[in-house]
Design a protein around this nucleic acid. Structure first.
Lengths: 342, 342
DNA sequence: TTGTAAGCGTTATCAG
DNA sequence: CTGATAACGCTTACAA
């Protein structure tokens, strides 16, 4: 195991030229002869040279790396968004550092420190569910590291791109659909209201009830972390004592799936006796029996957009005034079996 | 936006001491007075100092970063394994660079180059489904970067830890179970045989048939990439023309779920008319109706083990002879509704 | 206990 | 078109 790394000096020595020439040749500099370039590349290959990005980053003050911090990678939404981010990043020569906060504020802060220490050129983040302090974001910004929020954004930090979907609209669509299908007592499995997206979804739900002339019953709204277990627990709680709800509008899809599973396991027919609509798709949404109606988010597009905006900010020429703003993409209701009894 | 980063020199100047003292203080060096350490830490905080890992890595020749290359992060198995890896890594002060090959050989090679260029201290990898050349692994090894394979391992590279499960055993368990439940024509949705794990699963399936006195019918074995679409397509193909199979043993869980969905959508009762067993769990396996029997792999444990072995190799003192080998963990059959008609 | 100075592998700035 | 040489921010002998 020849632990020795080969450097541009080794190539320079080998060819009897200067290291700076090697560097330029390797970077395809304009004023280097084709012949030299070819020789350098050949020798580089022979010697097994691999450029050291650490050294490059140290001098150029850019690592060509961007950090991504999400709650968890095993949710369809985040996995797809990451795929979008990776696409744009790699097209532009950037590497992506993917990190999971596991929905823990402390871990998120830690990750930010690590990313800053690793001198990433920018960070794309979707907040942990209990993040209510924002100094780590400010620190990154003050260190000159561009930031883009997506999905779970942070309103307290301004002058930053925020990529979201029209949560109000999506929730309104999903809830209205249930009402149209004849469901009368529509429960809402909601996210904690510290996150704007969950406030918006609740608001959309309420507005839809109002417009459908259905009463708003706060006992039918339950706030949680939106885990699988939460879905099961809330379904159990609400369905135990009649009159329970006859439908669930869920703020994510994990809870939609687990609430539905609870119902089915307790011999409640979906959709005949119980309607289900989720927010955001999982891979299995269409495969479940019954298949799950859900509000589709343009996951991958959110990722590509976030990455584009981040690169825009990273590469802005002077103190070029960027038009920072929140960009809200449209949602789409995918109607399936779980909400259509007729 | 004060794009200027603050360095140890700024702290040194501020306090009128030497930069080396600052460096030592920050690293909690033994021979620095407590008072100095405290002052340095205080000023570092005030000035907003963040150590530059690039510079540190350049000189210490280690980045305290390990790379992970997996086919995709949105599968339960990989997400869990990554969680295990992250746990061990962060306990030991390492950052994890997660990369997706998207099951493309070319992308995998690319990622290896990037990781090497970023001077990761080691790489944990599960092969892309069509990886059949191994020079990128050899290059990493020759560059002195320790490698650990897990799940989809590479037999051609020796002297490397390989973390797998007992695939033969798992497939044997799953298939035998179907046979015991009275299923007679058990089909196998198999992975491409270029991967050892899929050869082993096929072998376990065959042996189980043999031991159950069931004939082996090669028409009931279908090779594919194991995507959701593959599961649906194969179910359709096999079920269209009688006599079709009366059970599916699937080499992963996505195909188990999608094959089951196909059956249900075509009014084939699971498990009464069709048994289903998958390999490796998805989050929804237990939530589906019927719930899906599957061979459970110790996903997270595979991750922790892989990370431990990697760190062992990274930190081995002299050319300390490590006992490289393949470590095969046990599987467990989780019996649920999809395979138990009685 | 602290300071001085060399060096990690690149790129950038001058010259030539 | 190419070559010296300084610099990036940190660690680490070696000196004091």
């Amino acid at each position: 195991m020849s632990n020795k790394k080969v450097s541009i000096y080794d190539i320079a020595d080998y060819l009897g030229i200067a290291s700076s020439t090697v560097s330029r040749a390797l970077n395809d500099h304009a004023r280097i002869s084709e012949k030299t370039k070819e020789e350098v590349r050949r020798v580089a290959k022979v010697l097994g040279f691999e450029k050291n990005h650490l050294a490059t980053g140290l001098i150029t003050n850019q690592s060509l790396t961007i950090g991504v911090v999400v709650p968890a990678v095993n949710r369809n939404f985040f996995a797809s968004a990451i795929t979008g981010i990776e696409k744009i990043a790699s097209e532009n020569g950037y590497t992506v550092l993917i990190c999971q906060s596991h929905d823990l504020y402390d871990r998120e802060v830690e990750l930010f420190d690590t990313l800053i220490a690793n001198r990433v050129d920018g960070i794309i983040v979707s907040l942990a569910i209990n993040t209510e302090q924002f100094d780590h974001f400010r620190k990154a910004r003050d260190t000159g590291i561009p930031l883009v929020f997506f999905d779970r954004v942070c309103d307290e930090i301004e002058d930053t791109f925020k990529i979201v979907v029209k949560d109000f609209e999506g929730a309104y669509l999903g809830t209205s659909h249930l009402a149209e299908q004849g469901f009368k007592r529509i429960a809402h499995i909601a996210g904690y209201q510290s996150q704007k997206i969950f406030r918006d979804r609740l608001a959309g739900y309420k507005q839809a009830l109002l417009d459908a002339n259905l009463p708003y019953d706060e006992k039918l709204v339950k706030y949680c972390q939106l885990t699988t277990e939460d879905g099961t627990g809330i379904a159990e709680e609400l369905l135990q004592h009649p009159p329970g709800p006859d439908a669930f509008f869920c703020a994510n899809n994990l809870t939609a799936i687990s609430a539905m599973a609870y119902a089915l396991n307790h011999h409640i027919k979906v959709p005949q006796e119980m309607g289900i609509v989720g927010f955001s798709e999982e891979t299995v949404s269409s495969l479940l029996k019954p298949s799950v109606t859900s509000v589709r988010q343009p996951c991958e597009e959110m990722g590509t957009l976030a990455a584009q905006k981040l690169l825009e900010e990273i590469n802005q020429e002077p103190a070029g005034q960027l038009d920072f703003k929140e960009i809200a993409l449209s949602t789409e209701l995918i109607v399936r079996e779980s909400s259509t009894p007729h």
